[in-house]
Amino acid sequence: MAFRSDDISINTLVGSGSFVKGDMKVNGFIRIDGDIDGNLETDGAVIISEKARFRGNLTAKSVIVGGIIIGDITAKEGVKLLSSSAVVGNIISRRVQMEDKVIFHGHCISIEEENRYATAVDTFLQVKAIRDKAVIS
């Protein structure tokens, strides 16, 4: 999974030692070197660096994970888990790459064909919503 030339400049940076609590919606490419406790949504790419910790659901065009994520990842173009990464949650993407020594605990949906991907995502999200509601009640 490669980033296109329009993905090169970082629009948002959460620096090392920073802590963000709450949901975020940003435009473009975001790099996270600190900690986030909340959901993140972007129309661009996301890099979670090796020392970063993220707790929440992540929605982006593509994601590279080097740190820790506790939550679901939805990335239409692709997800790459580096050997230093740990993900406890579900991954939904058209392409998923995992290096050796990755820690992953969850379900993974990876379907290349657009219509089948969209159907699988819709079904998964409906089941998840029902399950989450049942747990809360």
Rank of each mutant, 00 (worst) to 15 (best):
G34M: 08
R131P: 00
L13W: 08
S137N: 14
M98G: 02
S110Y: 04
D43S: 10
S85V: 05
R53A: 10
K21F: 02
D122M: 05
I8G: 00
G66N: 11
N57P: 03
I47R: 14
S16T: 12
S49I: 02
N11A: 15
V127H: 08
F29R: 15
E113C: 07
G71Y: 01
V65K: 05
I69N: 00
S16P: 03
F54Y: 11
I103C: 06
Q97E: 15
D23E: 09
I130F: 04
V65P: 01
G89M: 06
G38I: 03
V102P: 01
I111N: 03
Q126I: 09
E41R: 07
T12M: 04
G66S: 07
T119F: 09
V14F: 03
R4W: 02
I130E: 09
S49M: 07
L125V: 05
Y117D: 04
D132K: 12
G56A: 09
C108E: 02
D7G: 13
E114K: 13
D37H: 09
N90G: 05
F124T: 08
A75W: 00
I68M: 07
G38K: 02
G89N: 04
M24T: 04
V121E: 13
V46R: 02
D35W: 00
E112G: 08
A75G: 08
V65I: 13
A120S: 13
I111A: 07
D35L: 04
V127W: 02
K51N: 14
G15S: 14
H105K: 13
I136M: 11
K80F: 03
K101N: 15
H105L: 10
S110L: 03
D43K: 05
N39H: 09
G67T: 05
N90A: 09
K80R: 15
S137I: 07
I8A: 05
A118G: 01
A45F: 11
N27E: 15
E112A: 14
L40C: 04
S16G: 07
K101D: 14
Q126F: 05
I64L: 11
G22W: 02
G44E: 06
I10C: 14
I30Q: 01
V79D: 03
T59Y: 04
V46H: 04
I136P: 00
S83L: 01
I73M: 05
I48M: 09
R94C: 04
V26K: 10
D72K: 07
S62M: 14
S83C: 01
A134Y: 12
V20R: 04
I92D: 00
V135Q: 11
R31M: 12
T42F: 00
T119Y: 11
I109T: 03
V26C: 04
E113G: 06
S5G: 07
I109S: 03
Q126P: 00
K133S: 13
E41K: 11
I92V: 15
V65G: 02
S49P: 02
A75C: 09
D7P: 00
